[in-house]
Design a protein around this nucleic acid. Structure first.
Lengths: 203, 203
DNA sequence: TTAATATACTAAACGGTGTTTAGTTTGTCA
DNA sequence: TGACAAACTAAACACCGTTTAGTATATTAA
C-alpha cells in the first residue's frame, strides 16, 4: 500500500515547490513582490490551489522563517567546537551577525517582520526562536562557570548580548545606518566594531 | 491680500486633519488599518482628495515619523540638564527606551518600518535621525572628555549604545520577547535590565 | 461685471491584493 | 462499477493605492 506514501511525497513536493518559489521571489524582488497570485503563476497553478497546501499566506512565511532558523543553527553549531568559553561566546555572536548580513531576508523574517510573529503570539510557542536563545544562554552560562559575568544573571547577559547584535543587524537591514557609516567595507567594519564591543562586555 | 494666507491655513489644516486621522488609525488599529480609503471616509472626503494634500501614502508616514522625532527629542532634551556626563548618558538611554515602550507605533515608524526608509535612501538625507544621533554622540563625547571610553572611538561607543537600546526596543515591539520574560512588570524589568547593562558599558 | 483661470473635489476606473465559494475533474477503494 | 475523497479551477468578494476625466467653486484680471 505505497499509495499513501506516494501521495504524501507528492504533497510534500508541492509544498517544497511553493516554499522555494516564495523564497526566490522574496530574495530576488523583496517582500512586497511575494503574492499568492505570483507564486501560483510561476508554478503554473491557479491561486486557489495553493490553499490545498497552506492555510494562508502567513503560514508560508512561517515555514520560511523556520528554515532560516535551521540555517542559523547550522552556522552557530560550527562554532561550538571552540574551547575557550569567552572566545566561543564571541564567535557565537560573530556567526549570528554574519548570518544577518549574509541572509538579510531570512533575518528579517525571523526577527523583524510582523508576519511570523502573529503565529508565535497565537500559539504561545516559538520553538526555533527559543532553541536559538537557549544555545546563547548555554554559552553565557559556561562563561559564568569560567568566572565571567559574576555580577549579572545569565538571562540579563544573554538578553544584552542578543540586543547588541540584533540592534546592529536590525538598524542595518531596515536602512537606518546608511547615512552614519559610508566608509569603505561598511559591512566588515560594522561586524568588527560590534565584536570589539561585545568583547568589552565579557568580563 | 489675506486670501493666500487663509488658503495656506486651510491647506495646512487639512493636512493636519489627514495626519491626525492616519496616526489615530495607526495607534488604535495598527499599520494595516491605515488605508487611504479609511482616512478619506473618516474625514468625509473622497480618497482622491487626499492626493491634493500628499503625493502618496508613504509621504504621510514620512511626516508622522518626523513628528515622532520631535517627541523623542523633547523627551531627551529634558534630561540634558543632568550634570554628571555618565549619569546624563544613562538618562539619555532611559529616555530613549521609555519613548520606545510608551510610543511603540511612533518608534516602529522611526526605526523599524520600511516606509519612511525609502524616502531616506532616495533623498540621501535623514535630518531628524541624524540630529538624534548627533545628540547621542555629544553625550558620549562629553563622557570621553570626563575620562570614560578612552579605549574606543566616539562613533563606535555611540553605535554600541544605540544598538543595545534599539535591540531591546525592536525585539519587544516586533514581539520576539514575549516568550522569554513573562514575569511581573515585564516592561519595567526590561528597562531596568537594559540600563544596568548600559551602566556596565560606561567605563 | 464678466470672462478666464486655477483650485478643490469627486465618480469611476485600473490593476493589483488575499481569500472563499461552487463546481468539476481525477484517482483510489470497496 | 459506483461511491467517495482529494486536487484543482473560474469566478467572485472585499479590499488596496493611485490615476483619469470631468465638475463645481472661488479668485483674479480685463
Amino acid at each position: 500500500m505505497g499509495i499513501t506514501e506516494r501521495k504524501e511525497r507528492e504533497k510534500a513536493g508541492m509544498q517544497r515547490l511553493i516554499l522555494d518559489t516564495a523564497m526566490k521571489l522574496f530574495i530576488d524582488q523583496g517582500y512586497e513582490s511575494v503574492s499568492m497570485r505570483k507564486i501560483a503563476s510561476i508554478i503554473e497553478y491557479s491561486p486557489a490551489s495553493i490553499y490545498t497546501y497552506f492555510p494562508d499566506k502567513s503560514s508560508i512565511f512561517y515555514e520560511l522563517h523556520i528554515e532560516g532558523f535551521t540555517r542559523l543553527l547550522r552556522k552557530q553549531t560550527e562554532v561550538q567546537g571552540v574551547m575557550d568559553p569567552a572566545e566561543r561566546l564571541l564567535q557565537h555572536g560573530r556567526a549570528y551577525l554574519e548570518f544577518a548580513f549574509e541572509n538579510p531576508q531570512y533575518y528579517d523574517l525571523m526577527f523583524i517582520m510582523r508576519t511570523p510573529a502573529e503565529q508565535i503570539v497565537k500559539n504561545k510557542d516559538w520553538e526555533h526562536g527559543m532553541r536559538s536563545y537557549e544555545l546563547l544562554k548555554r554559552n553565557v552560562q559556561e562563561c559564568r562557570n569560567a568566572g565571567y559575568f559574576k555580577e549579572s544573571t545569565v538571562d540579563s547577559v544573554a538578553l544584552m548580548m542578543w540586543a547588541v547584535v540584533h540592534g546592529i543587524a536590525a538598524l542595518h537591514i531596515r536602512q537606518r545606518l546608511i547615512l552614519m557609516e559610508l566608509n569603505a567595507s561598511y559591512f566588515e567594519g560594522l561586524i568588527k566594531d560590534s565584536l570589539k564591543n561585545l568583547k568589552n562586555l565579557i568580563r
